Amino acid sequence: MAFIQTDTFTLRGYECDAFGRLSIPALMNFMQESANRNAIDYGIGIADLERQGFGWMLMRFRLQMHQYPRYSQTIRVITYPTVVEKFFIYRDFRVEDEAGTLLADATSVWLVFSIEKRGMVPLPDFIKKLNPPTGLEPLPKLSAKPDFQTNPFVPTQQKDVEVGWLSIDQNQHVNNVAYVQWLLEAIDKEVLQTSELIQIDLVYRTESHWGDTLQVQSASEAADTFVHRIIQPESGKDVLLARTRWTSVHS
């Protein structure tokens, strides 16, 4: 069977930012929760994979904001898988208000890793047999290696972060939303106070764990665009690569 997940959320104060808009980490947590519920319906939830020695890992994610919902507003998060390949499964998201107005959409790429070896493996047969819903137009596929991954990068800002216990998920590594919160907290104060995020594009490169020290780096690519890295300072390995785009809304 094919399953489409639809969840309704009424925005609470702690899910909104200083301007009363739904925060990006809160929105991504909504999306992750809906994806988890959808995966359970398909029999490929976290517990289903764990029983067979596997875990999910997010590899690519791109979110486009069209209109920010605000405190006390009710929204719908809709998600479903779109394509299943040998190593990757693709998943789209759509966020609407109660009238059906599109507020945001996102597309993502997921892989499966071996819990024992902590490395990527081909999708197990019970996942490859999944039937995505038909009759839906998927968002364009994300590039496995976007240009901001290979372009020269010279950081102009950097901030150290120590991974705390509450950033760890059931797969025993840092939850993907925690990285986004660290990245956004390192953005220039003026940008945070005068602009709102309209797009975030993410490449997750490797996992990190409780007690690790990471470095969040950023640089301006254009007046409204920034590129970001989260690295392991000791090894120099990239943990997360990202690009954010902003639009001015406050003076």
Rank of each mutant, 00 (worst) to 15 (best):
R37P: 03
I4P: 12
Y14I: 04
V84G: 05
E234I: 05
E207S: 15
L22V: 04
V109H: 01
F30A: 09
L136W: 12
I230Q: 01
T134K: 15
V249F: 10
R205K: 13
P132W: 09
P25V: 06
L103Q: 04
D48V: 01
D17R: 03
F61D: 06
G45N: 03
Q64Y: 11
A178W: 00
S218M: 07
F9Y: 15
Q52P: 00
D169Q: 05
T79L: 03
D169C: 08
T247G: 02
M120I: 12
S220D: 07
S235K: 03
K128S: 14
M120Y: 08
I44H: 08
F87S: 14
R51D: 11
Y90M: 04
A39I: 03
N38D: 12
Y14E: 05
W182V: 09
P25D: 08
K189N: 07
E116Y: 03
T206W: 02
L184H: 09
P133N: 11
I78C: 12
E116L: 09
L184W: 08
S143D: 15
E15C: 01
F3T: 14
L142M: 11
N176Y: 02
Q172M: 09
A242W: 00
G45V: 03
F226T: 14
R60T: 08
G43T: 08
W210A: 02
G100F: 05
M57I: 14
I230K: 02
E221P: 00
V177C: 00
H209S: 15
S72K: 10
V174N: 06
G164P: 00
P25G: 08
T213Y: 02
Y90D: 12
R70Q: 11
L63V: 05
K141P: 03
V112W: 00
D17S: 03
S218G: 09
Q170F: 09
D48S: 14
L197V: 10
D160W: 01
G211F: 05
A99N: 15
T156W: 04
P132Y: 07
T247D: 06
A18F: 06
L22T: 01
G100Y: 12
A222D: 15
V239K: 13
T213Q: 14
A222T: 11
N176C: 01
S195H: 13
A47F: 06
N151T: 11
P69T: 03
T213N: 13
Q64A: 11
Y68A: 13
L184S: 11
Y204E: 09
A144H: 09
D169I: 05
Y90H: 14
V216S: 04
D48R: 02
S143T: 06
S248C: 07
F30V: 06
R94D: 04
Y90C: 10
D212A: 14
V154L: 04
Y80I: 00
T213C: 11
T101D: 07
W165A: 12
